[in-house]
């Protein structure tokens, strides 16, 4: 299949008489580009296209259909009565107290969860900074929660926190530290407990990303700061943190976007309850769509979540660009 190229990259021997009637005659038939640059371009496009088409067909088309559905009053139980309502679904959601509650819960869950993860993750990353055997083993083991599916994580904590016979929940209830029905079943503590579960599962990931940022810091700057007699805390605040700001932002982006679309752990532990206390946007959308088959409304909720995610991601990308410029500009 290979053509010995005499003049470097320009392989132009395809039309030579030896090959014209040979196995490569089809090249003339479909008149493929002859220069190397053109064939290279064609090759690269051909390698990319299948993945692009697949992702658009299976991913983007459903999303677009979801936007389309959100303009209809469309219930699967009575599909014949579906009709166009324009922005009706969205306007309804604006005055829907359940939607307000779901949005509030999602924002609260995301902001508090990600904040705790950042603080604890930074502490762990700093403790793991030095590259010794103890730290390497610690890092390996500490990442275990990340590999466990959120479904099982939810079940673990649900079991531990059960007020009647859970290993932790029983004592919390006995000692008056939680409501008698347990942390997850009490409206005032359920959301906080979900935040705790999220912190348990994702802090290790946060720590890992921050650790990667720490290890990429220029050693000479740190040594200079130490030689100047800066205390460890000063070094952290004035040298380390500003320099690793890009990786902090990256970790925040990933965790914020993921926390905002939380579904699994909430669905398993509380299902949005008690009442509406832990209803998040995703749980609300699934309930509307696949329990009540209210496709129009569910699509509208999902699209609002999608829009929020896009705005959050875009905001962070802008901040990262600025942080990058700052960190590299000194």
């Amino acid at each position: 299949m290979s053509h010995p190229a005499k003049d470097g990259r320009r392989v132009t021997d395809i039309s030579s008489s030896a090959e014209a009637g040979g196995p490569f005659a089809w090249r003339q038939l479909v008149s493929l580009p002859q220069s190397f640059a053109d064939r290279r371009r064609l090759f690269l496009v051909a390698m990319t296209i299948p993945a692009v088409i697949y992702v658009i067909a299976i991913g983007i088309v459903p999303l677009a259909r979801g936007i389309w559905y959100s303009f209809f009053d469309y219930n699967l139980l009575r599909p014949a009565r579906a009709h166009f309502v324009g922005l009706g679904n969205y306007l309804d959601l604006f005055s829907d107290p359940d939607m307000a509650e779901a949005l509030k819960n999602t924002v609260l869950f995301t902001v508090s969860g990600v904040t705790f993860q950042l603080v604890l993750g930074l502490a762990i990353a700093l403790a793991l900074w030095r590259d010794d055997r103890f730290n390497r083993i610690c890092l390996t083991l500490i990442l275990i929660p990340v590999t466990i599916t959120p479904l099982v994580v939810g079940l673990i904590f649900k079991g531990l926190l059960l007020a009647d016979y859970g290993l932790v929940g029983y004592y919390l209830a006995q000692w008056g530290l939680s409501a008698p029905q347990g942390l997850l079943a009490s409206p005032s503590t359920a959301l906080g407990t979900l935040v705790f579960i999220d912190v348990w599962e994702w802090t290790p990931l946060m720590a890992l990303i921050l650790l990667a940022g720490l290890k990429a810091l220029p050693g000479d700057v740190l040594e200079a700061a130490a030689a100047d007699g800066a205390t460890p805390l000063q070094r952290l605040r004035l040298v380390v943190l500003p320099l690793m700001l890009p990786s902090v932002m990256l970790a925040l982006t990933i965790r914020t976007v993921d926390a905002f679309r939380v579904f699994d752990s909430v669905f398993v532990t509380t299902g949005g309850g008690p009442g509406n206390a832990t209803n998040t946007l995703m749980v609300y959308a699934v309930k509307e769509g696949l329990s009540f088959f209210n496709v129009g409304k569910a699509s509208a909720i999902a699209n609002i979540a999608l829009l929020c995610t896009a705005v959050i991601a875009a905001a962070f990308v802008l901040l990262i660009r600025r942080a990058d410029k700052k960190a590299n500009g000194r």
Partner: peptide, 27 residues
Amino acid sequence: LAMGIAYFFMAVRMIPAVAALIPFYLM
């Protein structure tokens, strides 16, 4: 365009699974 397509692939990771679920279910 290559960089744009790469970022497009990264953005797909951020799509809330539920947003695609309902239309995909109907499909």
